[in-house]
């Protein structure tokens, strides 16, 4: 009997201790959560209400200043602002440009980052290390400087055109096209993807790769069945962060793209500022928000999958 009492006592102590720690942990995580709720969550809700035509209260001033403001006609609001954006001739091409650039640039960035990471992991050596560290340089160049440099490089009398002209080749001017946006976004997104993917590949144990080589597995088989699955989560993180970053980019498409169609990031700024149509710009922001959320689902799914595999949940 006394023994069992002692057991139950320890159990109680342990539980209360865990509870106390979890309370401290909760309190420690509170400040960032509160900051997010106050300075990100609340403005998003207010903006969402504005997009539905709730023009009173905190949206009163912006409704006074803006043009073409749609006011709600039912208790929940109205979709008039959404309709006006979806029927605008610019929205379709803009969305298409945004998605095309995002998908294409993300694929290229992922393939390039994988190539660099796999080369460094399998081949290794001084050269690989130098190449990887060189590829991180754009991380330290401000985007606006990079965009301006790229514009100068591909411009009507830029370096590329000038050099090819010497050989009698009339290379097309790339600036003011979606191609230039794609080049610019790849340039600015590549370093982070390489950092993420190569560190993921580095953590794969040598023994796994070597034993596969001993068993006669081809290079592509090792990449496909060992390296990519084991570095799956960092690769998914790199892909999702790259895609979300490109989707909302402003500076690169503003400097390098055509006036129309352009990417939604630029169009939002145009509608908010020069066109003075804040409600429509908020609507477009929510379209990007939804598209980015879909990408974020992939990120969450990958994390849950890896947590399940390692037995955390």
């Amino acid at each position: 009997m006394p023994e069992s009492i002692q057991v139950s006592k320890t159990e109680n102590l342990a539980t209360s201790r865990v509870a106390r720690f979890s309370l401290i942990g909760f309190l420690m995580s509170l400040p960032p959560v509160l900051v997010l709720l106050c300075f990100v969550g609340a403005p998003i809700l207010i903006a969402f209400a504005f997009s539905l035509g709730h023009t009173g209260g905190l949206n009163q001033i912006i409704s006074l200043v803006g043009q073409e403001i749609y006011t709600k006609d039912a208790w929940w609001g109205t979709f008039d602002a959404y309709n006006s954006v979806f029927q605008d001739a610019r929205f379709g091409p803009d969305l298409r440009t945004t998605l095309t650039v995002t998908i294409f640039a993300t694929v290229v960035v992922t393939v390039m980052a994988l190539g660099m990471g796999i080369y460094q992991r399998i081949h290794g050596g001084k050269l690989a290390t130098i190449i990887v560290s060189l590829s991180l340089v754009p991380l330290f160049v401000p985007v606006v400087i990079a965009a301006f440099a790229i514009r100068t490089f591909y411009d009507g009398n830029g370096f590329l055109k000038a050099v090819l002209y010497q050989f009698g080749i009339d290379f097309p001017t790339l600036t003011m096209t979606a191609n230039a946006i794609t080049i610019g976004t790849i340039w600015t997104s590549l370093p982070f993807a390489i950092l993420m993917v190569s560190s993921g590949l580095q953590s794969i144990p040598d023994a796994l790769i070597e034993s596969a080589q001993d068993a006669g597995a081809s290079f592509f088989r090792i990449v496909r069945t060992i390296m990519i699955p084991l570095a799956f989560v960092p690769i998914v993180i790199a892909v999702t962060f790259t895609a979300i970053g490109i989707m909302g980019s402003f500076t690169v498409p503003y400097f390098l793209g055509a006036n129309q169609p352009t990417m939604l990031g630029v169009e939002i700024a145009m509608f908010f500022g020069p066109y003075n149509r804040p409600q429509q710009s908020v609507v477009m922001a929510f379209v990007i928000f939804v598209a980015a959320s879909l990408i974020a689902v992939a990120y969450v799914w990958a994390n849950v999958r890896s947590a399940k595999q390692s037995g955390r949940i």
């Binding site: 043009q67 605008d88 001739a89 610019r90 055509a258 006036n259 129309q260 169609p261 145009m270 509608f271 020069p274 066109y275 003075n276 149509r277």
Partner: peptide, 18 residues
């Protein structure tokens, strides 16, 4: 006047370039 300027900017963007 400024509201017509905003309208002209957005109308130009949707009707002229490209």
């Amino acid at each position: 006047i400024s509201s017509n300027i905003s309208d002209l900017r957005t109308a130009w963007a949707s009707q002229v370039p490209g």
